[in-house]
């Protein structure tokens, strides 16, 4: 049956905007704590799911998110984080950082949100691009072999700016 023979108007179908809009998102991840690693990854994943070309640049402490030695072991601390709404003195007691970290990991896992390495794998499978900051890698004496395998390259800040011309940018 063709729609031209029916009295109804054209079928009502969601608009998926398949026309390439050329929208690009650049996310700079500069923090190495568990709680600050997730926002960039969640937004990158969401953007990729909407067909947006996405680049992540890991710099300074953010390098911990793609360093094979640390990526599976990011921590969350109460110290200096008033949003935990706990007395700050408690955060300095032995074991508190480990406890805060395991609590946060548990609540994230309950939402079926993956741990950092799995999340990066998903982002790459969705077409996302991972870049490491040259200066941060040099400061920490890291080479590409020390980094998560799917990191495309260690590049300078200017190369990243060049690659993301016209992109919307998030600094986290």
């Amino acid at each position: 049956m063709t729609t031209t023979t029916t009295p109804q108007a054209a079928p009502f179908v969601p608009s998926f905007d398949d026309v390439q809009t050329g929208r690009t998102l650049a996310i700079i991840c500069s923090k190495g704590t568990l709680d600050m690693a997730y926002p960039g990854l969640i937004l990158a994943n969401a953007a990729l799911g909407e067909g947006v070309e996405t680049h992540l640049f890991f710099t300074f402490w953010g390098l911990d998110m793609i360093n094979k030695k640390t990526m599976g072991d990011l921590q969350m601390t109460m110290l200096g984080n008033t949003a935990t709404h706990m007395p700050q003195g408690l955060g300095g007691l032995p074991g508190m950082t480990a406890m805060a970290t395991s609590r946060m990991k548990k609540s994230i896992a309950e939402l079926d949100v993956p741990e950092i390495p799995d999340f990066l794998e998903q982002i790459v499978a969705s077409g996302g691009h991972l870049w490491a900051c040259r200066m941060s890698a040099d400061m920490n004496h890291l080479t590409k072999d020390d980094l998560y395998d799917d990191v495309e390259a260690i590049i300078s800040a200017s190369d990243f700016i060049d690659k993301t011309e016209g992109a919307q940018l998030l600094f986290i």
């Binding site: 969601p14 998926f16 398949d18 969640i42 994943n45 969401a46 067909g51 939402l111």
Partner: peptide, 22 residues
């Protein structure tokens, strides 16, 4: 399901858009 797989699959399957973030 190019570009927007989650929404396109939901549409074809006759279901609401997924509301989870990840």
């Amino acid at each position: 399901f190019p570009q927007k797989p989650a929404k396109k699959m939901a549409y074809i399957a006759g279901l609401p858009k997924p509301h989870g973030c990840v």
